[in-house]
Amino acid sequence: MLEQLTGYGLSKKGAVEDYPFGPETLVLKVGGKMFALLSQTDAGETHISLKCDPVIAANLREQHPCVQPGYHLNKTHWNTVVADGSLPMSDLQDMIDHSYELVLNSLTKAAREAVLLRIDGKA
């Protein structure tokens, strides 16, 4: 599951991986800003933290026990999802898309255009 989620996140235009918090937590960024944090527990459970509109975040938490307030993040704007199979991959991909779009749209116009104008990872 970790590899699938990482691969999908990295398929987003301008997405790069980083390890600013150490080797246990993979951070996906666009334009230098985080849009996903992925980790795996010792038991092999995959967790992914994603930025989310506050109203949508609250609804997801109410509807799905595997969606929790962001772990070590702003709990209003971030959710941590335990990828335990209770949500289909398509739902997780939709959440990644939403997080990516929120972060991309928060970039300055110049930074956003720099990301969107990249072709095959080159400016």
Rank of each mutant, 00 (worst) to 15 (best):
Y8V: 10
Y8L: 10
S49P: 03
K75S: 04
H64T: 05
R61E: 05
W78S: 03
P88T: 09
L38A: 13
E45A: 13
W78K: 09
M89W: 11
D18F: 06
Q4T: 14
Y19R: 13
Y100I: 10
H72A: 10
G85W: 08
Y71V: 10
N79L: 06
T80L: 09
N105V: 00
L116W: 01
M95Y: 14
A83H: 12
L38V: 12
L73C: 04
K109N: 00
I96Q: 04
E113I: 05
F35Q: 05
M89Q: 12
E45S: 11
C66E: 13
L2F: 15
D94S: 14
L26A: 07
S86Q: 13
D42C: 09
G9P: 03
V55H: 04
H98Y: 10
S49M: 04
G22K: 11
S90W: 01
E113V: 02
T25Y: 01
P69C: 11
T108W: 09
P54D: 04
H64P: 08
E62N: 08
L60M: 13
E113S: 14
D42T: 14
S49G: 12
L37G: 00
A15H: 02
G85D: 10
Q68H: 02
S99I: 07
L2W: 11
T46P: 07
T76K: 15
E17R: 15
V30P: 06
D53H: 11
V81W: 03
E113R: 15
K12I: 07
A110Y: 01
C52F: 00
L10S: 07
V82S: 00
A123P: 15
P23S: 15
T108S: 15
K109S: 06
Q4G: 04
D120F: 08
I56P: 09
G121A: 03
L117W: 08
G85F: 00
N105D: 13
F21K: 11
G9K: 06
A36L: 01
L5G: 05
T108K: 11
G44A: 04
T25H: 07
A36D: 00
Y8S: 02
L5C: 00
D53M: 02
L37H: 06
V103C: 03
H72F: 12
L50I: 04
V82Y: 10
R112Y: 04
D42E: 15
L60H: 02
P65F: 02
A123T: 04
V82K: 11
L37W: 07
V103W: 06
P65V: 02
I119D: 03
L102P: 07
T41L: 08
G85K: 08
T6D: 06
R118W: 05
N74P: 07
Q93K: 15
R61F: 06
S86V: 07
